[in-house]
């Protein structure tokens, strides 16, 4: 019996919940995988997984769906991290998309994202026969995510049906499924953007340097600052890359990820900037602007 109650902080409780979820998956699935996107949410998810199974090694591999249009610094970071931690890292690129030369500049953001990301992910899950995939999505990111279960069921065709999701009570998760069906599990469901940053700060979790402000070559296109990360980016007439102090709030394919002008070069400065800012995180993502309820539609089709 304890004498006086120990007040667990909100971060301790979120951590304990995420660890519980991950252990439940490992105990109940045949072939789980963790989707690793190299971003800050993935960094936190990986850190929590290491804690959940300590002192054992991670009982599942990491999977990165590489569209071949990620920032170069992301790939460098990914490979160094996998080596340092001895992780079993799988990298998959959609070979059909690659053969057809699919890219955001030539085919537009919708086709590129669908072929290289959504289809690429389905291919990899099918190829390795993964029955459960951890994803780093959070409920605070976007309205349709707020109703997403922690254990989210997908048909054999990887489709999400918002009306067929199982009720989740207490911390009792039903992970039973038929052969061919799979589950996406979101251990960070109840974390907010601020929680993620605070936890990174508190736990000293390494991040891709792109999150921190630095002088980078950018062009302003349709109101968004795009970094010219390599020479595949065709410049429009009158566009000249300019060196600006910028950073990124989310990371993805460089042509689809807007930078923000910033001088925040340390974690506390980033958090400070985030707390004082007035626009939401996903605003930097070009794909969300298409139409109302666009995210819900993408999810039904198999986007994470």
């Amino acid at each position: 019996m304890s004498d006086t109650p120990i007040a667990l902080t909100h971060l301790q409780r979120l951590e304990a919940e995420s660890i519980h979820i991950m252990r439940e998956v490992v105990a109940e699935s045949d072939n789980p995988v963790m989707l690793y996107s190299i971003g800050k949410d993935s960094a936190v998810m990986l850190h929590l997984a290491i804690k959940a199974f300590f002192p054992a090694k991670l009982p599942f591999p990491l999977l990165h769906v590489d569209t071949r249009w990620k920032f170069r610094e992301m790939i460098t970071f990914r490979d160094a991290l996998a080596k340092r931690l001895g992780l079993d890292l799988l990298v998959h690129t959609n070979p059909d998309g690659l053969a057809q030369g699919i890219g955001p500049f030539t085919h537009g953001s919708a086709v590129h994202t669908d072929v290289m990301k959504t289809q690429g992910l389905k291919q990899a899950l099918d190829q390795y026969g993964f029955d459960v995939a951890f994803g780093g999505a959070r409920r605070d990111e976007e309205k349709s995510r707020a109703k997403e279960r922690i254990f989210s069921f997908r048909s054999e065709q990887h489709r999400w049906d918002p009306k067929q999701q199982r009720p989740e009570l207490w911390r009792t998760y039903n992970a039973r499924k038929h052969k061919g069906e799979s589950i996406r599990v979101f251990p960070l469901s109840n974390w907010t953007e601020l929680d993620i940053w605070q936890y990174i700060h508190l736990e000293n979790i390494p991040l891709v340097p792109l999150y921190f402000a630095d002088k980078r070559p950018v062009v302003e296109r349709d109101g968004t600052l795009i970094m010219v990360d390599d020479d595949r980016m065709p410049l429009r007439p009158g566009e000249t890359p300019q060196m600006k102090s910028v950073r990124f709030r989310t990371l993805g394919c460089y042509p689809l990820t807007g930078a923000v002008e910033s001088t925040a070069a340390t974690l506390p400065e980033i958090i400070q900037e985030m707390l004082l800012t007035t626009t939401s995180e996903r605003q930097g993502r070009v794909i969300d602007h298409d139409q109302a309820a666009s995210m819900e539609k993408k999810k039904q089709e198999g986007y994470f």
Partner: peptide, 12 residues
């Protein structure tokens, strides 16, 4: 930094 320290002790 002081703000972060204060907020690390929030309950849920």
């Amino acid at each position: 930094d002081a703000y972060l320290l204060q907020h690390q002790h929030k309950s849920l």
